[in-house]
Write a protein that binds this DNA or RNA. Structure first.
Lengths: 356, 356
DNA sequence: AGCAAAAATTGAACCGATCCAAAATTGATG
DNA sequence: CATCAATTTTGGATCGGTTCAATTTTTGCT
């Protein structure tokens, strides 16, 4: 005879049971100061008795329209946010700032292409931060449809209509190379992040100039520029693409050091690659920076605690995150492309080349 | 005279403009297969013309009641999820599984105590995974009020009414110590995770037995058990609390190795501590595992690529994550406490003690 | 007590969709 | 051409709150 299971208690039920209007009951929870204490207490009591769990977020949201959360999306599986060094650090900064603003963070994945649409469409957020890392055009298109504030990070596209924040890869790389040059190095090798999909191993000028990944291309161009300005021939320094993993980096290192006159300075386009390179050098019995100097790129926290501590070109992660969150929350509007500069952080992995 | 700004287009507007009912318009977007192609195209065309951004999530949500996302909360700033090794790996697994289920992940912070309430109350999720790491009782209480599925991870409380998933720290530690014992080690030192709030440095038995953090206590007890079974006096092996950072770990190591008969085996309660210990040994000119063996705990991915690769007691992170996500999504119900066992992963950092 | 101002409460509209039973249309068949 | 089944479309109820103008109650003052 008795009703099965306790059905969900609604605000309406509480109001009725307490003998007040739904409007008053609503006020008890969301603007308690405007209802008489006596009534407030009665309503609270009834609510507790009935097992009312507080106003449903959904209902409130429908009315208010604000979620108070930013969505971060990438064309990668969700775990990318926790596994990739760069993404991870960026996320740490982003979430720190969201925390300060009292906003939540929602992670949006794009594991499968069809799902991307749906995931972006149905994300409960006030705005988006897009981790593009190239090929993000589709992601941008989809996000646009949502008609919410958004900003793209690390996107290569020239399209001035998409609000984007990036770093000056060309000059960052140039500065990195100049640091090595200043130390007296004259024999170099470059370890590149991916140039074109799936490519790794020795690369030539043409491949670099038409690289699909603009980040890799710009950094290469920056290194070359510095080399050229120092009177060297950039084309004489070997450049190897890697997959940013141990295997391809170690393979590249093996080839590089098989040459008759191996380099004394390694220019790595990411800290991750740089750390694998250091590891290879260490395992092959070479000292860093005694025999070979290595400089990374990005400035991830791991670089600061590596052995030896890695010299790198740091990206202004905190600043990037701040701007991105502001934009995603719709507080400021990023117009076109915003380019930030990188900063040389000298630590233990670079030193003058060994005396002849 | 003209109206200011373009007001938001609603589904209703599209329906009206396309000359169909709102119900049909709704179907065009959410169940396109059941509407005639001709109609579908017309509606899509009108939608595009009007600049309709697709069905509002909020409206849909209100109706459907499902958000399709799990919330992960910790009594830590949001950046904890990206910075702490253990949390990070767990999150990688959790997000991987959510990805597979097509569910999103929302991060919920508890930076300030007052905000915790609000953040948990207003999180748009279908269920919660609580990263408790002790002192999570309050978090559990608040979450309970939300009347959504939830599960607590790494919680010390005995309260059987809270659904929890944990690992068998006692036996894990025992196995770790037995591994060292089996290798022939007889001189040990223990590096502990935090025992009581803020404490670090040498600890005594009483401090350990009444440690606030049950994880630390259980692991210590496990080590002791193995030592005792091997006929040793557990109280003779020094145990040091650390803050899981470089400074306190290095300080502990310095004190440990200042003893007349320094240990040949280090039992570390986390991989992070173990890695700092290895680092200290390396910097002090000792070889691992040649002079000293080190075993960690947790099995974070970094341990597998450290130099040397770290031997450790791995937690079944994938399994933990799977169970947790299932529970948070309300698919299964965790009854009381679920304890999983750990697995010894032997790598390069442990070997027999140096010959006399 | 009488009256205006302030405070508290009410009731209904609204937010933006989905869902479902009923109605309308289409198609196949004898 | 009538009949029946299958496919589409419709209209209205519903999800669970918030908000605001209107109404009622309370308070303050003479």
């Amino acid at each position: 005879m008795a009703k099965q299971g306790p059905e969900k208690i609604r605000l309406r039920d509480v109001a009725k049971a307490a003998g007040v209007s739904q409007g008053t009951a609503s006020n008890v929870f969301s603007r308690p100061e405007i209802v008489r204490e006596e009534v407030r207490e009665r309503v609270h009591a009834v609510a507790k008795e009935l097992g009312y769990g507080g106003p449903s977020i959904t209902g409130r949201l429908l009315r208010a329209g604000k979620v108070n959360a930013v969505g971060v999306a990438a064309i990668e599986p969700l775990s990318y946010f926790f596994e990739d060094l760069w993404a991870r650090q960026l996320m740490a900064e982003i979430s720190d700032i969201c925390d300060g603003r009292g906003a939540g963070v929602a992670l949006i994945s794009a594991r499968s292409d069809e799902r991307l649409d749906w995931n972006v469409q149905s994300a409960l957020v006030d705005g988006f931060i897009l981790l593009c890392v190239e090929g993000g055009e589709r992601l941008v298109d989809i996000t646009r449809q949502r008609q919410l504030p958004y900003v793209a990070l690390a996107i290569g596209a020239e399209d001035q209509s998409v609000p984007a924040i990036g770093v000056d890869n060309f000059n960052g790389a140039r500065l990195a190379a100049e640091h090595m040059l200043g130390l007296g190095h004259r024999r170099f090798a470059i370890l590149s992040t991916m140039l074109s999909d799936g490519h790794f191993g020795k690369a030539d000028e043409a491949l670099v100039r038409q690289a699909w990944y603009s980040t890799s291309r710009d950094r290469a161009l920056g290194y070359w520029q510095a080399l050229q300005e120092a009177g060297m021939d950039p084309q004489s320094v070997p450049i190897y693409g890697t997959l940013e993993d141990e295997t391809s980096t170690h393979a590249a290192m093996a080839q590089i050091f098989a040459a008759p006159e191996p380099p004394t300075a390694i220019l790595a386009m990411s800290d991750k690659i740089a750390m694998y390179a250091v590891d290879w050098l260490f395992r092959s019995g070479r000292d860093v920076p005694g025999d070979v100097s290595v400089i990374g790129f990005d400035g991830v926290p791991e670089a600061a605690v590596a052995t030896p501590k890695l010299t790198t070109m740091a990206q202004p992660m905190h600043e990037i995150a701040r701007l991105a969150v502001d934009a995603a929350l719709g507080e400021t509007q990023v117009e076109g492309r915003r380019v930030l500069s990188t900063e040389l952080v000298v630590r233990e992995s670079t030193a003058p080349p060994p005396a002849k």
